[in-house]
């Protein structure tokens, strides 16, 4: 991954974290990695443990962002989430997978959208 795209990704996550914080989320971890997976943001939202995937789009033309998370990516997030819960000995807590989509409109203005409960274990 080139330095440039890494920075774009970082910037997207910063924006998402800020957005979530403004919406009452409490950010617990960023870029959490397990052996076979990774999660962009882990936060708590009231009673929920939330695992957040940040999707950065240069423009929006390929359907809804949540639908754009492919199976492999979902598996990766789920694996990392399991690892996180296990390592931190979190039990009996309801969890959720959210997606934050960041993209620009044609006129250049930035849009940040939050999709709660974007996917489930399958």
């Amino acid at each position: 991954m080139g330095k440039e795209s890494y920075e774009i990704g970082q910037r997207g996550e910063d924006l998402a974290a800020e957005y979530l914080a403004n919406h009452g989320y409490h950010i617990l971890s960023r870029n959490f990695r397990s052996q076979q997976g990774e999660i962009d943001l882990i936060a708590s939202d009231r009673d929920f443990m939330v695992f957040v995937e940040v999707k950065n789009y240069s423009f929006r033309s390929f359907g809804l962002p949540s639908a754009a998370i492919r199976r492999e990516k979902r598996q990766s997030i789920i694996h990392a989430a399991r690892t996180y819960l296990y390592r931190n000995r979190i039990k009996n807590k309801n969890c959720r997978f959210d997606v934050v989509a960041i993209y620009r409109r044609l006129d250049g203005s930035r849009v940040i959208e939050l999709f709660q409960n974007a996917f489930f274990l399958t």
């Binding site: 819960l85 039990k91 409960n117 489930f120 399958t122």
Partner: peptide, 9 residues
């Protein structure tokens, strides 16, 4: 049966 944890069924 419902249990807390990752969402799914």
């Amino acid at each position: 049966d419902s249990s807390r944890g990752l969402p799914g069924q």
